[in-house]
Design a protein around this nucleic acid. Structure first.
Lengths: 161, 161
DNA sequence: TATTGTTATACTCTATAACTATA
DNA sequence: TATAGTTATAGAGTATAACAATA
């Protein structure tokens, strides 16, 4: 049962016999798995008229509490993008009537963002479908194996971040 | 030892208590880890005047055998992008003198691509540095743990692809 | 002066479609 | 007709820098 990464490792082995390319086995699979997952999730998003970055914003707003408003700066931090990218995402979402912007009463320079009723309805419809896709992706692994995977990834993440 | 993903899960737990968001623990960490790794690898590439896609092409050429030429179609397959994207990548690499294109003697329609001496030198310098970065990223895990991680990722990949 | 947020701008990357040349 | 590869084009997404308003 060889996969694409196995073939690549064999090529390296043949071409550069002295080189220890074993890290590629792990990181190569990680990258390719992430890419594959991304494209599978994209299918679910599309069924709801969303894409990954739109879902990201709406989900962040939903989980931050239906009755709260959050600032563009917080959104930027959550999504690891610039505040300018956030402004441009919000422009689109606002045009579609999915989010609303209001002046921040505590800071005249600021803005607060929240889901509209339409936006809330949309993300609440998409979320269970999204989770179902994630569950399907992970289904080849037992619960314990999923937990082990999360733990190993967390150990790398701690060091990387 | 809570991380970003833990915080997100707690938010969901609070806001949607009935919802089983456990798949997010795994897939969220996988996505974020992949992103972090990507940005760390980018640093190494940059030190050699490369980026991920450039490295990708040069490494594919190197491991396919120094004395062989490969077709743009093969490059597209390896990198999972369109042949048009390959042509545009090759234009840049050719302009920098890192790859050479020649007519395919066996097929008048075709092109064959190979590393130039300069390109070979560059990728052979970058490769050990790249592997060192990958090793550093994986260093929090023992050899066995790295193997276990690769295996778990492979099990997901098999199902996804 | 520093900070929040938006916009103007430019850049990078990509895929689709049109095109050339050959099979 | 089908295929290999390139180019022209347009679209998506981003960040940097400039800007306005307020702290």
């Amino acid at each position: 049962m060889t996969d694409q990464v196995d073939r690549i490792l064999e090529q390296w082995q043949k071409e550069k016999p002295g080189l220890d390319v074993s890290p590629m086995a792990v990181i190569g699979r990680l990258s390719r798995t992430a890419l594959n997952i991304e494209s599978r999730l994209a299918g679910t998003f599309e069924r709801h008229g969303l894409d990954a970055s739109t879902f990201d914003v709406l989900a962040t707003l939903l989980r931050s509490g239906a009755r709260y408003w959050i600032t563009p700066a917080e959104l930027a931090r959550e999504s690891m993008i610039s505040t300018s990218a956030v402004a441009q995402r919000l422009n689109k979402l606002e045009a579609r009537g999915l989010v609303a912007r209001e002046a921040n009463p505590n800071d005249g320079r600021g803005t607060l963002v929240a889901l509209t009723d339409t936006g809330k309805k949309l993300i609440e419809q998409a979320l269970p479908d999204h989770l179902e896709t994630e569950r399907a992706i992970l289904s080849p692994l037992s619960r314990d194996e999923q937990a082990a995977l999360a733990l190993l990834l967390g150990r790398i993440g701690d060091a990387v971040v």
